[in-house]
Design a protein around this nucleic acid. Structure first.
Lengths: 251, 251
DNA sequence: GCAATAGTGTCTATTAGACAATATTTC
DNA sequence: GAAATATTGTCTAATAGACACTATTGC
């Protein structure tokens, strides 16, 4: 296998982003409207070319900042920002009709943002429930075919990102990435309920999360923003891997 | 963000393979010796360029066949072959000194093969214990620096593949990918012990794996190839996700 | 018999889940 | 007081892990 630097097929490399948040009890993803062919007018995931001297993670963080204004923090940082990790790479030769494009998809988890499209191209970006973007439930089974309204293979990418998020909040403290810096146990429970699409017992959930070492740190304050008895405020603890894990209920 | 197909930086895209197997009670990886600069004479992971009209998974399967003669089966196939899945993508601008190369790493799990290098470039490929390739244990901590003998960033890639395998055999039936088509509970246990680097109780292990629905299917025969009382032979069952999972012992 | 591995049974400490009861706020 | 949410406590069925014991081979 001789390695001839002048005889390799040229590729374009992009990063695409699955940016998830929880809004109004629903798991939502950031979608941008395409202004050009192909797939003109359809929704797509945000993304763009990797620059000539740019790492993949840097490119993903740059795109995230351009689209949302969020700064990515890699692991364990406490700054107000988003969790960002690599998801998977998509390189089917026909995935883009114009040329050979390999896309390194990334997954970002963000707290609910004040404005859906703070920076950048405002009127062409929005948060949409992932069920709608994946074509779940809005159409009956028409000859077994579910149609995603997303361009390219972005429906596949979004599905992979959602599944990664659903499984990863089981055994890591990643669910706190959907919460503001200070949050209550009830708010964290509503994150789990939205991401998994289930209803959890508030009493067992409370015992579980407060009993898992390193998951939550009491910040001292209380809040009553949910109504009812004031709840303690917590910050994310240092633990990244939860032991014992939060178990997703059986189907 | 205008999308100009003529103004994208060109990349080379390769696939690199972490091929794992269990030999003589040790987790081993396939390594090839580099015949050219840079890193001439060092060990590296097998890999190569993705062709112009080739999918990433196809390229990985082709490289795997070229290096080992193994055919990859994606999910759930029963043919004698290897498990193959995408691992992660590495694209640091400086990872290859010659040019900008993005490598899509894949993880392959294979049963112990009769000959280390059946096909291809025989004398320059071998199975090596992953601990040796990662520089674990063979040198004392010299100023906190562990040196992997692998070229490029292949030490990082191998470490990621090993960790993926270690965690994935917990909650999936992937450990059977290290076994021949028919195997005993004791052989499967030795796979877990080699991959995790622990000693497991044979009695509890037996109860656990035979009690997990869909994990193992009795094939009817017995064998005595391990000495002692003859053991039942099993095949991998249809289940891919184990419930309950096999729990790795605490550290 | 002895050594080795396979396989079954039993006991205990821990845990997940169901759900009762109490606490503290707003209306 | 009624309604809502937070928080603690209790009970039970299931389970992981420790380990005794039996089974079946080769020597």
């Amino acid at each position: 296998m001789p390695y001839d630097p002048s005889a390799f097929p040229p590729f374009a490399v992009t990063v695409d982003l699955v940016v998830l948040t929880v809004r109004r009890h629903a798991l939502c993803a950031l979608a941008v409207r395409r202004g050009e062919e192909p797939y003109k007018g359809m929704w797509a995931l945000p993304g763009g070319f990797v620059r000539a001297n740019e790492d993949l993670a840097t490119a993903a963080a740059r795109e995230l900042a351009e689209e949302t204004g969020l700064r990515a923090h890699d692991q364990g940082s406490r700054s107000p920002g988003a969790h960002l990790e690599q998801l998977a790479t998509y390189g089917d030769p026909d995935r883009d009709p114009r040329m050979r494009v390999v896309s390194v998809a990334h997954l970002a988890l963000a707290p609910d943002l004040p404005s859906p499209t703070a920076g950048g191209d405002a009127r062409s970006a929005r948060w949409a429930p992932v069920d709608a973007l994946l074509g779940v439930g809005d159409a009956e089974v028409r000859e077994g075919e579910y149609k995603s309204p997303l361009a390219f293979d972005h429906g596949d990418i979004l599905a992979a990102g959602v599944e990664r998020a659903r499984s990863k909040i089981e055994y890591s403290s990643l669910a706190t990435a959907f919460c503001p810096p200070e949050f209550t146990v009830g708010e964290l429970r509503r994150v789990y309920e939205a991401v998994w699409g289930v209803v959890l017992d508030p009493r067992n959930f409370h015992r579980k999360v407060t009993g898992t070492p390193g998951f939550l740190l009491p910040s001292g304050g209380t809040t009553t923003r949910q109504g009812g008895r004031p709840a303690q405020l917590f910050r994310a603890g240092g633990a990244t891997l939860l032991n014992p894990p939060m178990l997703r209920p059986e189907v």
